[in-house]
Write a protein that binds this DNA or RNA. Structure first.
Length: 476
RNA sequence: GGCGGAGUGGCCGAGUGGUUAGGCAGCGGCCUGCAAAGCCGUGUACGCCGGUUCGAAUCCGGUCUCCGCCUCCA
């Protein structure tokens, strides 16, 4: 298995710290507003990686934080006359709700920054004692970047290059020894939340929390450190600098997922193309959002506008229709839910198309190439459908593999369509009654009545399909 | 200005030297009372200009355009 490591900028063979186990830290959100499409993409990226590694047989541990104290949270709390904790609680809940809808597995541990103040104090104290950090009266504690040789490497730049550009876009703070130095701890300001420390009251800077939390949760030298592309610099570089200065080992692999574009520009509030994750899920369904995300490689910027979401929604409909045919043939995803990659390689999962599963695994082994993996799945679906058309039971292996591999990617397909969709109106019995009426009309070759009933059902979200064995239906 | 990425058929989006990516949409056909679903068929796609090669979307040189990061950001 190969993973692209941001630090070395190349695909690297994946060798975990402990054989058979993978430890993964994913930088989570700052909870000052509702989650947007980008949060969804990032979460789905790491959820997919996790699911795949688990399928491969690894014992995976995921830690993902919530930043619940930060400038923007303070700002919003003050603007809305509420506490920071209240703001954080509201948007943590919103984040959880949308990720749950997307089917993103909850991390095994989810540290909150405000619960790790004492660990952050330990980190900063150590850096102060070794001279890697310094205090500025009234402002806080800063990290001296020159105490971390190689600073800039994650961004593909040298300290000198970075220094030459410093100040190009923001004013240099004269209290810093180097313009690149960053704040570890912010001295208390009136009206802001504060914690007591050996160097006075204040609140944490952003970059220390992930150091304290990741190392607490996963220990030194954990395997994968992930997050959005925009965190590479300065956030991850600054985390790395602290750990490096302290002489500890940090992440073995740095993985970053690319940004979401809407209208070919990065989605951002300032550009007015900020899209709430909840709106996209409402419009296209959670599975379409997931499918769309996986149709693009995680390291490439992707388009998530309405047209793209709509196309994905159609594709999910195709998969559901396939699931209906498979179910009718007695092939259900549940049958294969417990199968893992080693089972297929050992031949213990006879009944699945092993060749297709290998092609799928080969794609995923290549830096989690989900678009190619989906290619494998869709080709299986077409072959299985063709076999269904041909009659007989030749579709079994392909259909089973397609359903199983979709499950590995976290895409749930179902004969019933989108189980989370809101369905109002007709009960099952009501539908059956109307269908009986329609069947009678068809038998009498009264097609206008039959079509009227079908149209009525369609208006209620019921799709009717006729076959030699009679009519079947499902909710759209 | 520095660093990095990208330009692929109507749209999204894989693909790093030679056989069909895939999805969505369209068109024709089969199936159907008509549909739906499905299958089959269907697109002189690789920003532009040169070069290397028997052969390039894929390598080299040049050029244009777009995007991201350099500041909080998934």
């Amino acid at each position: 298995m190969q993973i692209f490591d941001t630090m070395t900028r190349r695909k690297t063979a994946f060798v975990p710290r402990t054989p058979g186990e993978v430890s993964m830290y994913v930088c989570g959100p700052t909870v000052y507003d509702v989650p947007h499409l980008g949060h969804g993409r990032t979460a789905l990226t790491y959820d997919t990686i996790r699911r795949y590694l688990e399928w491969c047989g690894f014992d995976v541990t995921v830690a993902s934080n919530v930043t619940d104290i930060d400038d923007k949270i303070v700002e919003r709390a003050q603007r809305e006359h509420r506490t920071e904790a209240d703001v954080a609680a509201e948007f943590t809940a919103a984040y959880d709700a949308e990720l749950d809808r997307l089917g993103v597995l909850r991390p095994h541990t989810r540290p909150h920054a405000t619960h790790f103040i004492s660990q952050m104090i330990d980190v900063i104290s150590e850096l102060l004692s070794m001279g890697a950090a310094y205090e500025v009266a009234g402002k806080g504690v800063y990290f001296a970047v020159d105490s971390a040789p190689g600073y800039g490497r994650l961004a593909g730049r040298t300290l000198e290059q970075l220094a030459a550009d410093a100040g190009a876009r923001i004013d240099v703070d004269p209290d810093k020894r180097s313009p690149l130095d960053f704040v570890l701890w912010k001295a208390a300001q009136p009206g802001e939340p504060r914690w007591d420390t050996p160097w006075g009251e204040g609140r944490p800077g952003w970059h220390t929390e992930c150091v304290a939390m990741s190392l607490s949760a996963l220990g030194p030298g954990f395997d994968i450190h992930g997050g959005g592309d925009d965190l590479v610099f300065p956030h991850h570089q600054n985390e790395w600098a602290q750990v490096t200065a302290a002489g500890e080992s940090f992440a073995r692999y740095w993985v970053h997922s690319a940004m979401v574009n809407v209208g070919s520009q990065k989605m951002a509030k300032s550009l007015g193309n900020y899209t709430h994750l909840a709106d996209a899920i409402d419009a296209a369904g959670a599975r379409a959002v997931r499918l769309l995300v996986l149709q693009t490689h995680y390291r490439k910027a992707m388009e998530m506008g309405p047209a793209a979401l709509d196309a994905a929604r159609s594709a999910v409909g195709r998969l559901d229709a396939f699931a209906r045919r498979a179910a009718a043939a007695g092939i259900s995803p549940q049958t294969w839910a417990a199968v893992r990659r080693p089972d297929i390689e050992s031949g213990a999962a006879a009944g699945l198309d092993a060749e297709a599963a290998r092609a799928f695994a080969a794609a995923m082994d290549d830096d989690f190439s989900t678009p190619t993996a989906l290619d494998v799945v869709f080709r299986l679906v077409r072959r299985a459908n063709a076999a269904f058309d041909a009659g007989g039971d030749g579709a079994g292996h392909e259909a089973a593999a397609a359903l199983h591999l979709l499950g590995v990617l976290g895409i749930s397909v179902s004969p019933d369509g989108d189980a989370t969709a809101t369905v109002e109106g007709l009960t099952d019995d009501g539908v059956e009654a109307l269908l009986a009426e329609r069947a009678a009309a068809r038998a009498a070759r009264d097609f206008s009545t039959a079509d009227r009933i079908r149209d009525e059902l369609a208006a209620s979200g019921i799709v009717v399909s006729d076959s030699p064995d009679g009519a079947s239906w499902h909710r759209r």
